[in-house]
Design a protein around this nucleic acid. Structure first.
Lengths: 341, 341
DNA sequence: CCGAACTGCGAAACCGGTTTCGCACCGCAA
DNA sequence: TTGCGGTGCGAAACCGGTTTCGCAGTTCGG
C-alpha cells in the first residue's frame, strides 16, 4: 500500500437528488424514477435523456430514502456464538465479505445461544432494524442450535451450525468428505498401510472423518493399519500416539491425523526417530492450521482445508438467494499439498 | 447449544407504528415522539402515559424510517485490504463485533488498496449508503495506506494500517511494547543471557520488537546474548538459527523469538538436544499463534499477544466516539503464559 | 368515422418517523 | 385588570425516494 491519493471529488455539501435530475431532464419525479429503475411505460428517448443527466451529475440515490420506501434495509443480521473462536472466525469473515460484495451490510450480534434472554434481545433488535435476512453462525455441528427461524419473516440460514429444525437451511463442512479426501490422497500416493490418530470419540467430526477414511479404504481394497487412536486435539497427543504406534512395531507408511496439531506432533516424532517424511511415512492433517502461507518454506504439513471461509460465503449468499433449498448443504473440503506427503 | 425454543411472539403481520401509540395514548404524533425520545416541553404525566402504552404494545420504531428522518444510517463502512489474512482477520472480527454491540451495521468492502479504480468504486458505494463513519483495516504498518479521509464527511479511522496523512486517527499494535514485555518477563524470571531470533531486518515490526528488547535489557543492566539473528518468520528458520546458536557454544538461558513459528522451531531443537524447557532455557514468542486454547495441554509456548481483536474493537469504537484524537494510538500487548518460560 | 386499447407521462399518495413553530392556557407581577 | 413569559401540546412540513392511477394522445380494428 504505497502512499497515494485518489483523484476524486469532495463530498458536495448538498448531494444531488432525484428531483434535480427530473428538473434538468424536464420530466416529473415519477418519470425520472422509472427511467433509472428500468420500469416500463416509458419511451426510449426519455429514458436515455434522464440517464444521461443522472450520469452527468453523478447522481447517487439516497440509500436511506430508498430503503425506507422499499421497506428493505439491505442489511443482513448475523447471530454468532463465540465468533472469536478459531473456527467460527473464518466463517464470519467469509460471510461478511460475501455480503459486502452483494452490497449488503451486516449487523452482528455475538451471543451465547444458551442464554435465551440475550438471544431474545438480539432478535428484537434485529427485527427493529428490519433486516432482510438472518445468518446464524454456530461452532460446528457438535451441538444443535435452537432454531430461531420462526421469529422472522425474512429468510434464515444456518452456517457451521446444525439447527434443531430439519426444514431449516443449514451449511456444514463435509467432515466425512475430508476423511475420504485425505485417505484417497494417500492411497493415490501408493500408501497401503495407513493409520489414524485423531481426537475424542465423543466428537461428531471425529466420527465422520473416521467414516470417510473407512469408506475410501474399502473402495481401494485396503484395511486400516491398526485401530484408530482416539485422544485429544493436541500436539502432545499426536506425538505420544505416534511414539506408541512406532513402539508397537506396526508397519505403517502413512498417518491420517484428525487435525493439524496432531499432525505436527506426529511430524516431530518422525524427525526425532529419523524417519524420512514423506519417503518413509506420509502425514496428512485436517484444518489447514498453518493457514495461508505467503512466505515459502513455512508450511510443513499436507492438510485438508474444510473451507470454512467459503462456507461462510456460501451461506451468506444463500440468505439472499431467491431459491433456497431446505436441509443440510455440505461444503466440499480441499486438499492443501505440503511437504509431508 | 442444546436444542431449545425461545418463548417469543411471532412477527405480527403489521407492526406497531408510532401513530398507533399516539392514538391509544390520546396524544398527537409529535407528542408521542417527544415522549419516547426524551424531548423537553412535555409533562411528566403525558410522557409516562405514552411510554406505558409503547411498552404494552411492544412498540419498536421502524429503524428505516428513523434513519431516513435523521439522515443517519447506523452503518459503518469498513474498507479492508486482504481481510482474510492471518492478521487482518482478527482486527476485522473485533471491529464487527464491537459495532454490533453498539447497534451499528458494518458494510465491508475488501479491496486491493493498490488499485485506485476499485477503491474509487467502494468509496462511491459507501457514500451512497450514507455511512456514519469509516474504518480502514490494513495489513499491519509495513506499508502506508493512502489516506481516504478527505473523501468523507463522516469520521474515518485506520486500524492496523498506517495512513500517509499524519492527522488521521490510527490504531496500531505496540510492537516495541511487545519486545519490552517479552524481555521483561524473561528478566523477571531471572534470565540473564537472552538471545533473539527473528524475521527479516526489512520488517518494521522486527525492528520495533528488537528495539523494545534492547530498551528493556538496558534498563535491567543486561546485554543481549550474541547478535540478533535475522531470517524469515518460519519454523524452519527458528530451528536452524537455534541449532547454529547452540553450535556456536554461546551461553544462553532464554530466547526471545520474533514470532511463534520461530519459537516452535526453537522448542523442537531444544527437545531434540535434550535441553529442558524452561529449566535450562526459556522461550517466548509473539503473535499467540496457538490462539485461544480451550483444551488443556495444547499450548506449548509463552507468547506475547498483540491483541489484534481488541485493536479492531478500539478502532471501531473510536469511529463512533465524539472525542477523537488524531495521530497514532498504540494498543498494549499482553503476555500469555505457557509452559516454555 | 367511432370506440377500444394502448402508450407516455405526471400528480399525488405513501413509507414512518423527527422537528419546527404557533396556539392556547397558565401563573405571576405590575 | 392587563401584560408578559413560560409551559404543554398538536398541525404540518420534511427527509427522498417508489408506486399507483388517471389523463391525454395515438393507433388500430370494425
Amino acid at each position: 500500500m504505497p502512499s497515494r491519493r485518489y483523484a476524486f471529488g469532495m463530498p458536495s455539501n448538498r448531494s444531488v437528488r432525484l428531483s434535480d435530475i427530473a428538473a434538468i431532464a424536464g420530466v416529473s419525479l415519477s418519470t425520472a424514477s422509472k427511467a433509472l429503475n428500468g420500469g416500463d411505460r416509458i419511451s426510449a428517448e426519455t429514458r436515455a435523456r434522464v440517464r444521461e443527466v443522472a450520469e452527468r451529475l453523478d447522481f447517487q440515490p439516497n440509500a436511506l430514502a430508498r430503503s425506507f420506501a422499499l421497506g428493505r434495509s439491505r442489511t443482513i443480521g448475523i447471530l454468532t456464538y463465540r465468533a472469536a473462536s478459531t473456527f467460527a472466525g473464518p466463517v464470519l469473515i467469509g460471510a461478511v465479505l460475501q455480503l459486502g460484495e452483494l452490497q449488503q451490510a451486516s449487523l452482528v450480534f455475538d451471543e451465547d445461544l444458551l442464554v435465551p434472554r440475550q438471544v431474545t434481545d438480539s432478535i428484537r433488535a434485529l427485527q427493529a432494524r428490519r433486516i432482510d435476512g438472518l445468518l446464524v453462525v454456530g461452532d460446528g455441528h457438535e451441538r444443535l442450535s435452537p432454531s430461531v427461524t420462526h421469529h422472522f419473516g425474512a429468510p434464515v440460514t444456518y452456517a457451521f451450525a446444525a439447527s434443531d429444525h430439519h426444514e431449516d437451511v443449514v451449511y456444514l463442512p463435509d467432515n466425512e468428505g475430508a476423511g475420504r479426501l485425505a485417505t484417497r490422497h494417500l492411497v493415490e500416493g501408493g500408501r497401503t498401510r495407513i493409520a489414524h490418530i485423531t481426537g475424542s470419540r465423543d466428537s461428531i467430526a471425529v466420527r465422520l472423518r473416521e467414516r470417510g477414511m473407512r469408506t475410501e479404504l474399502e473402495a481401494a481394497g485396503l484395511t486400516q493399519a491398526g485401530e484408530t487412536r482416539h485422544g485429544s486435539w493436541s500436539h502432545d497427543w499426536g506425538a505420544r500416539a505416534m511414539s506408541e504406534l512406532l513402539d508397537s512395531g506396526a508397519e505403517i507408511d502413512a498417518i491420517f491425523c484428525g487435525n493439524d496439531h496432531i499432525g505436527l506432533g506426529v511430524l516431530e516424532v518422525c524427525a526425532a526417530r529419523g524417519l524420512r517424511v514423506p519417503a518413509d511415512i506420509a502425514v496428512v492433517g485436517v484444518d489447514n492450521w498453518e493457514g495461508i502461507v505467503l512466505d515459502q518454506g513455512i508450511r510443513r504439513l499436507t492438510t485438508v482445508d474444510l473451507e470454512l471461509q467459503r462456507l461462510g460465503r456460501l451461506a451468506a449468499a444463500d440468505v439472499l438467494s431467491p431459491e433456497r433449498a431446505p436441509g443440510e448443504h455440505l461444503v466440499a473440503p480441499t486438499l492443501v499439498l505440503g511437504p509431508s506427503s
